[in-house]
Design a protein around this nucleic acid. Structure first.
Length: 484
RNA sequence: CGGGAUGUAGCGCAGUUUGGUAGCGCGCCUCGUUCGGGACGAGGAGGCCGCAGGUUCAAAUCCUGUCAUCCCGACCA
């Protein structure tokens, strides 16, 4: 009766966003705009990142940048323009990117003698730089990274998942041997995976791309694949081993220890603001965004109750100052009602809400409410720092576990193409199935099921010994899925 | 690039069928009362009805064109 009404209301406090299970795509864009992460602009396919969305990116940046510096990488910045002749030096690379580059053809009122593309990625510029500064084995390795934006003229776009311009980091390294370039690609994949799993609480499958899905110009491409709440896969980051292909095209040579002239081997790798889309679709619910504590711009929001009453606001400010030493905390002392604030900060995904009113002041306590589960607990003020720190860790762990449970629940195995199709008729998720290694089978599976090969996982056992498509002896276990 | 839908106040929409003073809800501003799950009252501001032509005494409404966005598919961090 009255109680069940209340429970229903508690399950769904925010009426203004689309129900997640009714229309996932609309739910997604509702969150993007209502949580004030980004907004549409007058430029097709380009969004404005609002302060809250940009703060998320800054936190991802900080976390990753630190990991990269700890492993010896240095930040640089290269131009956003690439002359056509430079872009065309590596054949596979230009073929891969040409269909989606934007061209600059005039400077002011003067037509350019050679048109410039707006970088879709910077391999060519890094190669040009490396060709000039690498001469000796003593100059190696070069471990450079760049934070920038790139432009790809995509046909269809969605905020964070695919926009014409997006922010990312691109690492470009040069090594003495191909083994070193290979080791770098694998090492960075591990760093990406740790970033996702610890800071973003987002489980990922690490693996290798098939030849069909490989990056233009790469010898090997590695990927981390995450499974979103709706069962579609998201490529969250990639790393590539180029071998010496680019070095040969760009003439990047060095004199080795034995006075022999050799080509360097290279790697490149990137993650982008797409990770923010991943966070939304991994953790969000019908009340809005749910942010992992690791990157939440505000981890604890203090909401004073009856803040006009004597002493409440002053005491709340003291709590804020205390907590500021252990976490990112803010106090909402606007003149909205507490109920409004509860909903607003839920929409924005703030991990912990701290309620503090006259009742708490009297009892020397505070109420902590978890965003991920809705659970409330009352804690003694003297133990506040410890309770908050412990709760933040607990939230990260349970968000990760919940996402992992979703991924496992939506991972199926198929041993025949018929079975494969049948599973995807009623479900969306990862399909584990064996593959002979022949691209014809990969193409046929895509044609029949709309699923693409996501990766050949590093970990994961064979689920049979015959190709799911042709029945010939299988070479690999592959994760398949419909992807964003 | 194909299929579908939509452009009217910051947001969500009605009004278009049958042409005749530009509307509603939320939000915003001011004042007051409120405050443990999106408070209430009073007052107020805000509009090239996507854009360009045309028809008409008169166009948000009818006609032609155009631009943009969103959703669903083919291509991609």
């Amino acid at each position: 009766m009255a109680k069940s009404d209340k429970n229903e209301k508690n399950e769904r406090n925010v009426e203004s966003i689309t129900n997640r299970d009714v229309d996932f795509a609309k739910w997604y864009t509702d969150i993007v705009t209502k949580a004030e992460l980004a907004d549409y602009t007058s430029i097709r396919g380009c969004v404005a990142l609002r302060p809250y969305g940009y703060a998320l990116w800054e936190n991802i940046q900080k976390n990753l940048d630190q990991r990269l510096k700890e492993t010896g990488h240095e930040n640089v910045y290269l131009p956003m323009f690439i002359p056509e002749s430079l872009l065309q030096k590596e054949k596979d690379h230009v073929e891969g990117f040409a269909p989606e580059v934007a061209w600059v053809t005039a400077g002011g009122s003067e037509p350019l003698t050679e048109r410039l593309c707006v970088r879709p990625t910077s391999e060519t510029l890094f190669c040009e730089l490396y060709a000039g500064i690498i001469h000796s084995y003593r100059d190696l390795p070069k471990l450079y990274n760049q934070w920038c934006s790139v432009v790809r003229w995509e046909k269809t776009t969605r905020p964070f998942l695919r926009t014409l311009e997006f922010l990312w980091q691109e690492g470009h390294t040069a090594h003495e041997t191909e083994d070193e370039a290979e080791a770098e690609a694998v090492r960075i994949l591990e760093i990406y995976s740790q970033l996702c799993e610890s800071a973003l609480a987002m489980p990922v499958i690490k693996g290798q791309k098939t030849e069909k899905e490989r990056f233009a110009g790469a010898k090997t491409t590695y990927t981390i694949e995450a499974l979103m709440h709706d069962g579609k896969a998201l490529q969250a980051g990639t790393t590539h081993n180029f071998g010496d292909g680019f070095a040969r095209a760009f003439g990047i040579q060095y004199t080795d220890r034995g006075n022999q002239l050799r080509y360097v081997s290279q790697s490149s790798w990137g993650v982008s603001t797409r990770l923010i889309g991943g966070i939304i679709m991994t953790h969000g619910d019908d009340n809005g965004l749910v942010l992992p504590p690791g990157i939440a711009p505000t981890q604890v929001m203090i909401i004073p109750v009856a803040q006009h009453k004597e002493g409440v606001l002053e005491a709340a400010r003291q709590l804020r100052d205390r907590l500021a030493l252990v976490c990112r905390v803010a106090l909402d002392d606007s003149d909205k009602t507490p109920g409004w604030k509860f909903s607003e900060h839920e929409m924005k995904g703030i991990p912990i809400r701290l309620e503090f009113g006259p009742r708490d002041m009297e009892n020397q306590q505070a109420v902590l409410a978890r965003r991920d589960t809705g659970e409330k607990r009352t804690v003694a003020l003297e133990r506040l720092e410890d309770e908050v720190s412990a709760l933040l860790a607990e939230i990260r762990a349970s968000m990760y576990q919940k996402a992992l449970d979703n991924q496992r629940r939506k991972t199926f195995t198929a041993s025949t193409l018929a079975e494969f199709e049948a599973i995807l008729r009623d479900n969306t998720g990862f399909i584990q199935a064996m593959w002979c290694g022949d691209q014809a089978c990969e193409d046929l599976i895509k044609e029949k099921t709309a699923a693409t090969s996501r990766c050949l996982p590093f970990e994961g056992e064979a689920v049979g010994d015959r190709c799911v498509c042709c029945g010939r002896p299988a070479k690999h276990m592959v994760y398949w899925g419909k992807a964003y």
